[in-house]
Each structure stands twice: as C-alpha cells, then as structure tokens.
Design a binder for these strands. Sequence first.
DNA 1: TAGTGGTCTAGACCACTAG
DNA 2: TAGTGGTCTAGACCACTAC
Lengths: 245, 245
Amino acid sequence: MDDTLKIVEVPRAQPLYAQVKTLMMQRLIAGQWRPGEMLPSEFQLAAEFGVSQGTVRKALDELTAENVVVRRQGRGTFVAEHDDHRALFHFFHLVGPDGERRLPESRLISVRKGLAGRLEAGRLDIGRGVPVIRIRRVRSLDGCPAIAETIAVPQKLFPDLADIREVPNTLYDFYEQRYGITIARAVERLAAVSANERDAKLLEVTPGAPLLEIDRTALALDGAPVEWRVSRCVTSNHHYRVELG
Amino acid sequence: MDDTLKIVEVPRAQPLYAQVKTLMMQRLIAGQWRPGEMLPSEFQLAAEFGVSQGTVRKALDELTAENVVVRRQGRGTFVAEHDDHRALFHFFHLVGPDGERRLPESRLISVRKGLAGRLEAGRLDIGRGVPVIRIRRVRSLDGCPAIAETIAVPQKLFPDLADIREVPNTLYDFYEQRYGITIARAVERLAAVSANERDAKLLEVTPGAPLLEIDRTALALDGAPVEWRVSRCVTSNHHYRVELG
DNA sequence: TAGTGGTCTAGACCACTAG
DNA sequence: TAGTGGTCTAGACCACTAC
C-alpha cells in the first residue's frame, strides 16, 4: 500500500523483527492500541508492515515475554491489562510463611498536594518544587497492619487524584483506567530500617523494631518514572520473596 | 540412525521442541555435556533428534533464556559456566548508592561438620540428623564488614569440603569445578531483623541495629536444593535491588 | 574458506474459540 | 465453520569467528 511505512531505510541497522517490535511499542505508548484491546492478527500485521508472519511472531513473542501483550490461542492477541492478578503476581512480593501471596487490604490515611522535595524530584525525574500528590495508607495482611506506605506522583499526570475520597486497593489498574497511564516496570531498593514513632503507631509495633523498607520507582510503558512509593513492612509473619535465574 | 531415540511415542503430549529441550536438559544434568563445553551445532542436534533445525533452535532459545547455555555467533553453543560475572549479576543483588554492584571480599570464620537441624533439613530437603557442613564468614563491601553469612550444605554432595582451609570468595564456580554441582536457580526470602550480639560484633554495629536477612535456598540443575545460606546485611550504605517486569 | 549462529521467508497442519 | 494463535518444516541468505 502507498501509506505503508517503509521500515528499512539503512538496511540491517536493526533486525526486522526488532523494528517491527519498536513500531508496535510506539503504537502502544501512543495509546493507539488501548489496554484490553485486541491487536490485528499476525497475518494482518505482517501485511501492514510488509514482512512475513514469522517475523511478526518473533516481535510478538518478545512483547509477550515482557508482559506487554497477552496471547490466547484461538482468540487473539490483546494489550495487557492491570488486573488484580497481575498486580499481585508481578508487583507484590510479600508472602506468608506458606509461600502464598495474599492481596492486602488498605486503609487510607491521607491524600495531600505538595511540592517535590529533593528525593521525590530525583526519583520522579522532575524538578524540585514541581507539584506532586502524596498518598499515605496502611495495608493489612491477614487482618494485621503490616505495611505503612507513602506514595508520590506528579500532579500533572494525575490531575484530579487529590480530590479522590476513596483510593482503590490496587492502584495500577486505577491509573490505567482513569489516567491512561500503564505501569510497565518497576525498580525496588530494599533495606532494613528501624520503626520511628509514626511507623510504630501505625503498625502496632514498638519504636525501633526492624522494618523492611521497599523503595519503589514505577515506570510507564515509555520508561518514564511516574510513581515513587516507600513501603515499610513488618516481616515477622511475612517475607519478601525473590526468585533468581 | 538405528540408535536414535524415538521422541514421539504418544503424539503431541508435549510439543516437539519441549521434548528436545528436556532431552538436552537431561544430558546437562547427567554431566554428558560439561560446563564450558561446546554443544553440537544446530544441524547436528537436529539430525540426531530427528527434527528440523528450527525446532532445535526453539529449544536452545529457551535454554538460553534460562541461562543454561550461552550462544555466540560464529563460535557455537556452550554450556553456561559460573564465572565471577555471573555470580555477581545473577546471584548478588546488593548495590551501592550509585546502583553499581561490587564484588565483596570474604573473611572465613569457620568450617564445621554437623548434623542437620529442623530448619536445615527442611530447606535442604534431607532428613534431620543427616551430616552437613556449615561455613561461617563475613563479607566486606568497600572495605567495611557488611554481611554475616552462614552456609549449610549436605556433606554427601561436598565430601571433602570440611577439610578445606581456604574457601574461595565466589562459591558457585568452586562447587562446579570441584564437585560437579551447578547452581542453576535460587529462591530468596527477605526480612528485616535486629542484630544479635554476635552479628553486632562481626558487623561492627550496635546490638539491635536493623539488618536485612537474606535466606537463600540454591537449587541444582535438576531442581534439588543443594545449599542453604542466611546472610545478615547492614544496609546503611547499600541496598538490595530488584527489577520487576 | 568453512563452519557457526542469526535472520527471514513461505507454507503446512494442529488446537482452540466463538458464532 | 471460520478465524486465531501454536507448532513444525525446508531452505535461503547474512554476520561473525577461526584457521
């Protein structure tokens, strides 16, 4: 077709399948394909990009491995969505003594507007003094308060978040549905700290008790940081689980 | 060939490439292909297994993704080895404030024989009272003692380990070269704890100081647990880094 | 130059899903 | 039954490595 994008300009700068993958990624970032939507079939995509079905498949295989799309035999290829299961499986690593994950319950403490401090500015890659929204909450596991959480996001990306009365338990699908922001990846920094007075009150432990601090920066599809979250966790009944390849 | 293994007995119980992968994995576990060795080429493997080159490639792609083999264009496919880089990159997650990894230095405290207690028996999947070897050491980062480590392994798998005077810094390549045991995967359980008297002395902190406890079970190629390691870490100058997909 | 893995194609058939 | 992804094949050419 005339309006088909020419992919190869300088031959073999990148493999064809990588170019196709980049083009599809760009559409996903631009919101041309929305979460939950079905993508065109392999043959349609192959025709559109002017490559073979196998090349499209290789690009889709990589996007599948990165949890960007989900493929279901007989049904089609869909843009990945943030449901409870994904939140729990990919972004929540606290498990009980049995190794089983549990979805925590949340109690909202406050939602406030503010201006980015040094740390927030660094983590969110914005300037100091830029408006942010801060959320505080306590999350419970098995009925016991276990996680004291502070969340900071740029106000620009989440315009009316500060006016929200009830914040849902799993935030990432909320970000996606209400603000069109998909959390694709995250980096966590873990350290052991001592509970301060406030932690102690919220988590019902003695001041000075050891807590696991999880400092998470969450990134959107395009790699930009969009949320900074610090969770202080009681680990007497739960632990953080990591699998190493 | 006459002695070629027939792969398909019940057609399509598993995809062909998965069967090929399993067969190759069995050879790796049996030590028929040793770490560092070169595997036959795709075409040779395809001929041997009676499948096409593409099917072998798919199996090799998965083994590559699992860090079991390493492929180098123009050279061949090799059984993965435990070098310092792999130890650092796949099995060591403590990084400095800049996010860079550093290889820690080790000071050996003791190597002792003993009998498996309840926890050791559970983690190593052996019976209580089975002979084990316990290693204690302190590891330093940037010259400061930062990790107090206790390691337990079944004596049966590491016959003369208790007689060793000097234990090398990176144990996994040592296990591989001396005992033919390849560590393929590991599961870590993280929690925050308070330093006891011994921790405090070894790590030069005050008793009660918060420490990050890393409880790791390391698994061999066949999935059997072969090492249990508990590391208590000072995280005032370093943190444990996790990337979430 | 020969041998290896890396890419790309074209086409076949199977397994699953939905109407 | 039609359409989708999943598997498998056969063959071509390229890029890299070693001799």
